[in-house]
């Protein structure tokens, strides 16, 4: 080579090491002090899983970069160069696998716990809500006293008549359906909510960050998920799947009120 390349411990190495150290310190601090939006539903297992991953990946992130710093800054010692070592390789492979399997088992346990509703026979029946997404609004309805959603038919959709979901008013089960104003969902605090999610047109996604809830509204199928709001308040609903030019303004509001106030607030909202 026609020039002497910079070496470990030289000026360039120290500069690169400094920049790396600065980045690692800043990013570790930023992540360690970062937060999710305040939790407002019974899905805190997601928060714990994130915290667990933060610790584990933090250790690996720091460890790998400290190794890089040491490599850059220390003068190399010929006698201590690692040689091919199958045993050591098996050891770190096994360790990696064990940690990952532990995370997997935890993930599976969390998913099952989060998916299931309450199994307590004495608990109140869940609040069933149908959410129908469209370009660019959210439609909500409750089944009413009979607990049955009235029939809908895409051919009955009439935006001028404000029948956004195509409700068949001739169906007796539709009579007591409670149709909320577009974009506003009112729920009672502390009661399980079972959502049936549909879409009229393209793929949307129901995302309320404080509830730790996200599910795609997939045209052609109705998917279900369940959660229990644990805090009263107003929580913004975002669409989390690109759905057209109005994707950014598909904002909804989920209003959680104390149980005792729910019926009254519903009535007020529907008026």
């Amino acid at each position: 080579m026609s020039f002497e390349a910079p070496k470990n411990g030289g000026a360039l190495a120290r500069l690169f090491a400094f920049l790396t150290a600065a980045f690692v310190a800043w990013s570790a601090y930023a992540l360690a002090t970062s937060s999710l939006p305040p939790l407002a539903a019974n899905r805190g297992r997601i928060d714990s899983a994130i915290a667990l991953n933060l610790v584990i990946s933090g250790i690996v992130f720091l460890g790998a970069h400290v190794a890089l710093l040491l490599v850059l800054l220390r003068r190399p010692r010929e006698a201590r160069i690692p040689h091919e070592n199958a045993r050591v390789e098996m050891l770190w492979t096994a360790l990696t696998a064990i940690v990952l399997v532990a995370l997997l088992v935890n993930s599976e346990l969390d998913s099952r716990a989060l998916a299931g509703g309450s199994t307590d026979p004495g608990a109140e029946p869940p609040v069933v809500v149908e959410v129908v997404a469209q370009q660019f609004a959210w439609n909500f309805r409750l089944p009413g006293e009979d607990g049955i959603f009235g029939r809908t038919d895409p051919r009955l959709v009439d935006q001028a008549e404000l029948n956004f979901i195509g409700l068949d008013r001739k169906d007796p089960a539709a009579e007591d359906d409670i149709i909320l104003p577009q974009g506003l969902l009112v729920l009672p605090e502390g009661r399980e909510v079972r959502v049936r999610l549909r879409s009229l047109d393209v793929i949307h996604s129901f995302f309320v960050a404080p509830f730790r809830v996200k599910r795609d509204a997939m045209p052609g199928i109705a998917t279900e998920f369940t959660f229990t709001p644990t805090l009263s308040g107003r929580f913004e609903l975002a669409c989390a799947e690109h759905c057209g030019l109005g994707h950014y303004r598909m904002r909804g509001m989920v209003e959680v009120v104390p149980k005792a106030d729910w019926a009254a607030r519903l009535k007020e909202a529907v008026q």
Partner: peptide
């Protein structure tokens, strides 16, 4: 990289 001389 460990203990090896690096050409940066």
């Amino acid at each position: 990289l460990w203990n090896r001389p690096l050409r940066l």
